[in-house]
Design a protein around this nucleic acid. Structure first.
Length: 427
DNA sequence: TCTGGGGTCCTAGGACCC
DNA sequence: TCTGGGGTCCTAGGACCC
């Protein structure tokens, strides 16, 4: 059996853990430049605020209902997440961290501390709430996909009290018979529309389709999904996460920018963060992709017509893998200059590091030297200095430093668990 | 004024090999 | 009338996840 534990409205709950006064109050959390809504409390959902909705569109509702707003605080969420995950290992040894707020548990070698799965689920809920003040939902079933279904039902049906176990064939049948096909794990917009055209509306109907047909329209992923619905596990627990295959960043500017210098400045600061992530994962990058795009929402001032669009990207294969930010930056800026065109209002520039190899990999080319060891060491030292004295205290000269821009977070909460100055005081 | 961000996996089709 | 056959590798684009 598999268990799926996930935090309810996780980002909102992280704030509420330190602000119990916000219980029952509508709360939303915004994307990195306060651009869009990325998390909502149940009260905010009930008011009709949508996932991904632009923040400015919520103004009226906010004024009417006193919605509490937070800028995103990823250090806080990351820290609360790792606390949640490590607490889960108190219940079972095998835990797969699936996302920042979700984990699969293997309940195979269940040693009988709990007479029923229901009991285990309730205990997880109670203790996580006690230890971390984060409400979680628990779904338990014979496959991961069915555990996902169970988890969703646990949330939907309040009489289940946050725990749903699908164990007997009858329980599974009942659950799938009324489960909308578009709510299944692995069924997105496209597949849902296609399936509906074929009159497949419930999970049970999907489960009973023909293998060849489903493979044809939903590829091998769809076939796995169908098998999992039938109770045959195709997705196994991955306790140790595989190394990352790419590390990237493509946040919006929060405004539009026409000139190359300012874009290069933003690119440098994206690369600085991405490079740090790369070194933290003990990997080297073999290729760099730069992308640049205008905003699809933007209108031409004056006539109200859609502004002219441009979007392009370029990949540079490096002569040798490296993790040194200055070296990566050289390629990144070359790429940017190659795709930049004047006359556009740009919305975002992105960087993606791919062809990642382990840090120990030091193969040199036939005609080229390997990576500059001193530069890589230097980058490590810069990381340490910045970790100790604060982000961007040491930075590349091409990163013009303006703390006001482009980071705009008007509703930032304290970093309760990751900054000494922000630690909670008890009166 | 402001319109999410970070990922993974799969497939088709082209280029190339002998 | 017939128009090789078996294979690999790479890339772009699509679909999906949270």
């Amino acid at each position: 059996m598999y268990g799926l534990v996930d935090g309810n409205n996780f980002y909102v709950s992280c704030h509420r853990a330190f602000r119990p006064d916000l219980e029952g109050v509508p709360v939303i959390v915004l994307s990195n430049r306060d651009g869009n809504v990325i998390a909502r409390s149940n009260e905010a959902k009930a008011l009709g605020i949508k996932m991904g909705q632009p923040f400015f569109e919520t103004k009226e509702l906010r004024q009417q209902h006193g919605i509490v707003v937070f800028s995103s605080n990823f250090p806080l969420y990351g820290d609360m997440s790792s606390r949640l995950m490590s607490l889960l290992t108190n219940f079972v040894p095998d835990v797969e961290v699936y996302s920042i707020d979700e984990a699969f548990l293997q309940l195979e070698n269940f040693w009988g501390l709990y007479p029923t799965y229901q009991g285990l689920g309730q205990d997880i809920r109670t203790k996580i709430d006690q230890w971390l003040r984060i409400p979680v939902g628990v779904g338990i079933a014979p496959t991961k996909t069915l555990a996902k279904v169970a988890n969703k039902l646990a949330k939907k049906r309040s009489e289940l009290n946050g725990v749903c176990v699908l164990e007997t064939p009858q329980q599974i049948e009942d659950a799938l018979a009324n489960f909308p096909v578009e709510d299944l794990w692995g069924v997105g917009h496209q597949s849902a529309a296609r399936l509906k055209r074929e009159n497949i509306r419930t999970a049970a109907q999907l489960r009973d389709t023909n293998d060849d047909w489903i493979r044809q329209i939903m590829t091998v992923n769809g076939l796995r999904l169908v098998h999992e619905l039938r109770g045959m596990p195709c997705k196994l627990l991955e306790v140790t996460p595989p190394p990352k295959k790419s590390i990237g960043s493509e946040p919006g500017f929060g405004t539009v920018i026409p000139d190359l210098d300012t874009i290069a400045d933003a690119l440098t600061s994206h690369l600085t963060r991405v490079g740090m992530k790369l070194r933290r994962s003990d990997q080297l990058a073999g290729a760099v992709t730069i992308s640049l795009r205008t905003s699809k929402y933007r209108k031409t001032p004056g006539n109200g017509l859609a502004a002219k669009q441009y979007s392009n990207s370029i990949t540079l294969n490096l002569p040798h893998p490296t993790s040194a930010t200055p070296e990566l930056l050289g390629y990144a800026l070359t790429g940017l200059k190659a795709i930049y065109k004047t006359g556009y209002q740009y919305q975002k520039v992105g960087i993606l590091l791919t062809d990642l190899v382990p840090e120990s990999y030091r193969q040199k080319g036939v005609f080229v030297e390997g990576p500059d060891e001193r530069l890589i060491k230097l980058a490590g030292v810069v990381d340490k200095v910045n970790k100790r004295f604060g982000q961007d205290k040491l930075r590349l000269a091409s990163q013009m430093y303006n703390p006001e821009w482009p980071y705009q977070q008007k509703y930032l909460s304290p970093h309760y668990t990751t900054r000494w100055e922000d630690i909670l005081e008890a009166m």
